[in-house]
Design a protein around this nucleic acid. Structure first.
Lengths: 337, 337
DNA sequence: TAAAGGTGATGCAACGTTTAACCAAAGTCA
DNA sequence: TGACTTTGGTTAAACGTTGCATCACCTTTA
């Protein structure tokens, strides 16, 4: 529990000026081998670690990147974080993560904290119903930032997302090809555009076959919420034979609910998930789902942010990564009438 | 993309000195109502956010707390983080999270980054085989820190953990009471003392009944690793009728493996997990497991850290929270011989 | 009327870096 | 020899806060 050693201490110990010590440690300027060694030895001896706050204030650069995400306890999101973190680390940055738990005011506080500490850049997924003022905040302070998954409603920010509509379009066609006509969309919250895009994909596929009927059910992204929502759906709309879900957890929950009433997913009722989390494969009923590589998504995110940091005045870009259908056991032909 | 507004700008706008602006915004000193309002208006108008780096350098306090954990994609850990984060937030702190992915050198870098930015405090679970030098680092820089889950091998740090031995002792007794005698321990890595303590608990229970035979199998904390390890175990030691697992994921994997060879967990072979993650309840075979409240664990962690920050010279403390057995369907009497 | 006390605001140094500007000494070259 | 470059290093000014010491002014009181 000593006091933190400072650059002045190192310089003192080595018998040189502070500036010289700084140059040695940063590898800049012209320094003779002898003094270089002197300083390095002193630094090691004192266990010197530079103060990032001071360095970043003076230099104007900050090698810490902030990330605020709506949910941390989720394999998919965790993989995204790993991908982004790995790439950023290679470039000498550090990614620190905040769990917004889909709470607008919590996230607002988090973003303010990032601004206060002048993070080098920001990666975030806007919580549902994020007000315009939050986007303004970011613009006012000129912090390079990239959103992902949920497209920002206001402001001009870089964005990385998933080809949502194309994915659910494919999934719905798969169901139509199998012979389903009564299809429901399960999960997600109103006003989240990821979900709107996905529903749009379903609609487009249905319309192309002359169907314009689709039931939409809100529910949270968890297994238990999925179970409950599916039970309700089966009670109120027994005619539905296939559901497209907003996420794997909901889909797994829905499958379980189907099982609980003595039917089997993929036989009486088909289920499609989204994300292909590791859970999907090992669920009680192995899940047909839309797979995207979260790790690669994370890396892309990091790359977009770094570009933005290098080139603050580029026009905002939008990058979409594809999702592809992987068929497992929860989809099949509907029962013959 | 403007330039970040500074306190000087606010003072200027309000027509007062920098010192006055600072006092108003921090609520210190004696200020007349008129100037107070003037300054506040100016701050709001400019969208002013103070620079935490400068503030923290000058004041010596830092309201950002760092957390480094071996795995983020895990409901149990995520709940711990939520608990700690909530309590710290109430006290005006912010918790930023780093995923160490159980890599000693990655974690070392992360801790150094925390030191560089002089975080107000540190919560971390040491990666397996953390060398003494890492603990030294923390001591040299006098950063208040608390470890959890894995007890530090060196150094004198506060610690919050689980009553591991008592928990597995109870679980093993449960299995013994059901009539099992050939018991294996599945999961975890050597040199992680959480695991050693848990194995010790099993041993103690076995020894008390005159048994000193227990198979120990290493494997990572994931479903797929659990599946593989269990298949191997059944092949090499078909006499085993019960396994105690190092975590729920391994236990769920083990249950699946048992199912895959045509047996049923809780009938031919019993399985006990650890943690009681939400998955445990909804697994294909609802899991008997040892439950601890991760959210409460997180809160306790935060409290311990705050105490340490207030009272840097207290002797290091150790706090243990209990785990209790919840019986579901994966345990039962062994098949009659 | 002079000393004392209260109020509200300000000036200045400091926190630990980085970096541009500068400089002394030594080497190079015509 | 004198001018010019190179080498190796130092000085000092920032970066945006905070908090101590100070001060001008006004009111009270002996």
């Amino acid at each position: 529990m000593t006091k933190k050693p400072t650059l002045a201490n190192v310089a003192n110990q080595a018998g040189v000026s502070i500036a010289t010590a700084s140059q040695v440690l940063r590898g800049t300027g012209r320094i003779s081998d002898t003094t270089r060694n002197l300083v390095k030895a002193a630094a090691k001896k004192l266990n010197y670690v530079p103060d990032a706050r001071a360095a970043s204030m003076r230099s104007g650069a900050n090698h810490e990147i902030g990330l605020s995400i709506h949910k941390i306890a989720n394999r998919f999101n965790a993989e995204i974080i790993s991908g982004a973190s790995d790439l950023l680390e290679d470039e000498g940055y550090l990614l620190s993560v905040l769990d917004a738990r889909d709470d607008v005011v919590r996230q607002r506080k988090q973003l303010e904290a990032f601004i206060r500490s002048s993070r080098g850049g920001l990666i975030w997924v806007p919580a549902a119903d994020t007000p315009e003022s939050t986007f303004d905040l970011l613009n006012t302070h000129g912090l390079p930032s990239v959103t992902f998954l949920r497209r920002p409603e206001f402001g001009e920010l870089d964005h990385v997302g998933i080809e949502n509509a194309a994915a659910t379009f494919a999934a719905t066609n798969h169901l139509l090809d199998l012979g389903h006509t009564k299809i429901a969309y399960l999960g997600g919250e109103a006003n989240v555009d990821v979900r709107s895009e996905r529903i749009e994909g379903c609609r487009k596929a249905l319309n192309a076959r002359g169907i314009d009927d689709i039931h939409i059910v809100d529910c949270q992204d968890s297994r238990s919420a999925g179970i409950e929502a599916m039970h309700n759906l089966m009670k109120k709309h027994p005619e539905v034979t296939a559901v497209v879900c907003n996420g794997d957890m909901v889909a797994i929950g829905a499958s379980l609910a189907i099982g609980q009433v003595g039917m089997r997913p993929g036989r009486e009722i088909s289920v499609v998930g989204f994300d292909d989390t590791p859970d999907a494969k090992y669920a009680t009923y192995p899940l047909t789902t839309l797979a995207v590589s979260p790790y690669e998504l994370g890396r892309k995110l990091a790359r977009v942010l770094l570009e933005r940091m290098n080139e603050p005045n580029m026009p905002p870009s939008t990058t979409l990564v594809p999702a592809k259908l992987v068929e497992r056991e929860t989809t099949g032909a509907p029962p013959a009438k």
